[in-house]
Design a protein around this nucleic acid. Structure first.
Length: 445
RNA sequence: CACCCCAUGGAGUAGCGGUUAGCUCACCUCCCUUUCACGGAGGUAGCACGGGUUCGAAUCCCGUUGGGGUGACCA
């Protein structure tokens, strides 16, 4: 059998849609699984809607998700492959040749200035690797416009010609094209060519079941990057929409997906997009990620949130990130969780203040302050601090929580955060004491 | 309206003639615990409906209903 050639053929309209990304992913996965070739073809025949710079949006999204292109335009502006051009806007002569041929063979004719293809009225068989085979009745099928009045070819024509010319063996695309496939087959038969295998993958729907469009939440791949999702998590989630490793696992490496992925196992029913699950998967990846691997993301998120100073102590930063990373699921949470590490004038959460900075709470804070002053800087570690807290609690006949909660609020302004003892260790004695001092003046409102 | 595809809890799925219908997210309870999260133990919740076929159906067939898609001189 010939080696597999698949293609992703997006129309660059300004965003990289999650549905497109999933289609690209399944094509890419199949190419990698079979050792085939992944082609990127830009369907930019609609000049009114497509802009050259929009191609970069798609390329960047694909790169972020970890998909590399074997043939077609690259991010650096170069073009790979010898089956080009890979932009439909540059293939006008090729399309014309095919249209002329149809005309010459009387398989197409002119009508009102446009060119129409004579669609045979006989039944036609449509085979699909995912959806199965069926027969389409064409007795009432109208002829198909393949070239507009202005001379430009339409989608059905260019799509088929390009797949043929580029030697595409498997057309993996959204199920929204399933109903059009018989038209493509008709064209291919008219050209006397061998059709590719078709595999229509299910669509991604909104949680409410409506078709996911540009404006819907979660539609743009760029948003995920912006919100601090980990690309491995997003890809992992996308793989699970319409495909399953069938062994009750959810978190799976892309390498393993490549190994197991195959077309016949792709589901036939549409999937609903579920942000909850993505969120959970992201948390899984977040906790599993090494500190080094998420440091760039953390810096980006904190810079964007405006909470990271121009210059900072990298050792201190990493120590802070290390204890915070275990608690969050999304990069977007970082500014809120880490801002107080880098400033002394943070606000105190009003609700927490009311609850924790009571007269008793503040009194305990004062006692704690006094006690910690006596702790050697070298002993300002999580383990030693825990002992100090426990000793103090025992000495005053109270629970440790009576000191922990005021301490947390005093040093971070928040009621939730990383393990307190570790937090104090990372902040260090100087900051801790001065922050406690500052908190003294904050009576519960 | 016509044609096509689909149908397991709220969501993603496993199942492919015989199962107490499994898993994950979400939700609820409890445990762990310095908060949150993690982790652990439970719980609520499902084969859309109706006919067949069969000794036996979530699994096969038909119909209905529901959802989605297509029906462009958009892609």
């Amino acid at each position: 059998m010939d080696s597999v050639r698949v293609r992703f053929a997006p129309s660059p309209t300004g965003m990289f849609h999650i549905g497109s990304a999933r289609t690209a992913l399944f094509n890419w996965l199949y190419a990698r699984h079979t050792g085939g070739t992944f082609v990127l073809r830009i369907e930019d025949t609609d000049a009114a809607r497509n802009k050259p710079e929009y191609v970069d949006v798609i390329l960047q999204g694909m790169k972020w998700l970890g998909m590399n292109v074997d043939e077609g335009p690259q991010l650096d502006g170069t073009i790979k492959g010898d089956k080009g051009p890979y932009f439909q806007s540059q293939r006008g002569a090729i399309y014309k040749k095919y249209v002329d041929r149809l005309l010459a063979e009387d398989k197409a004719y002119e009508s009102d200035g446009a060119i129409k293809f004579r669609v045979p009225k006989t039944p036609i068989d449509v085979a699909d690797l995912i959806c199965g085979d069926r027969q389409i009745d064409r007795t009432n099928e109208p002829d198909l416009v393949i070239q507009r009045k202005d001379g430009s070819p339409v989608f059905h024509l260019v799509n088929v010609v390009d797949d043929l010319e580029m030697g595409i063996t498997h057309v993996i695309r959204g199920e929204d094209h399933l109903s059009n496939t018989h038209k493509h087959l008709a064209l291919i038969q008219a050209f006397g060519a061998k059709p590719p295998h078709y595999a229509h993958i299910p669509l991604i729907l909104n949680p409410n079941g409506s078709k996911m469009s540009k404006r819907d939440v979660g539609a743009s791949i760029a948003d995920y990057k912006e919100q601090g999702y980990l690309h491995e998590a997003v890809v992992n989630y996308l793989c699970l929409l319409g495909w399953s490793p069938k062994d009750n696992r959810e978190v799976i490496s892309i390498a393993e997906v490549i190994e197991k992925f195959d077309l016949p196992q792709v589901n036939r029913s549409n999937a609903h997009f579920d942000l909850n699950k993505l969120f959970w998967i992201n948390g899984e990846y977040m906790r599993a990620a090494s500190l080094e691997s998420i440091e760039p993301l953390a810096i980006e998120m904190l810079r964007k949130g405006g909470v990271l100073p121009e210059s900072y102590d990298p050792v201190y930063f990493r120590a802070a990130l290390a204890i915070v990373k275990e608690k969050i699921k999304l990069g977007r949470e970082l500014p809120e969780w880490m801002g107080y590490f880098f400033r002394e004038d943070f606000d105190f959460d009003p609700a927490a203040m009311k609850k924790v900075f009571t007269p008793e709470g503040l009194a305990n804070l004062a006692k704690l302050n006094e006690r910690l002053q006596g702790v050697d800087e070298k002993c300002f570690t999580a383990t030693d601090l825990e002992n100090e807290f426990k000793a103090l609690a025992a000495a005053t006949g109270q629970k440790v929580g009576a000191f922990i909660h005021p301490a947390r609020l005093a040093v971070s302004g928040r009621s939730v955060g990383p393990s307190l003892y570790h937090l104090l260790e990372v902040l260090g004695k100087t900051r801790v004491l001065s922050r406690m001092e500052r908190a003294k003046g904050q009576g519960g409102a």
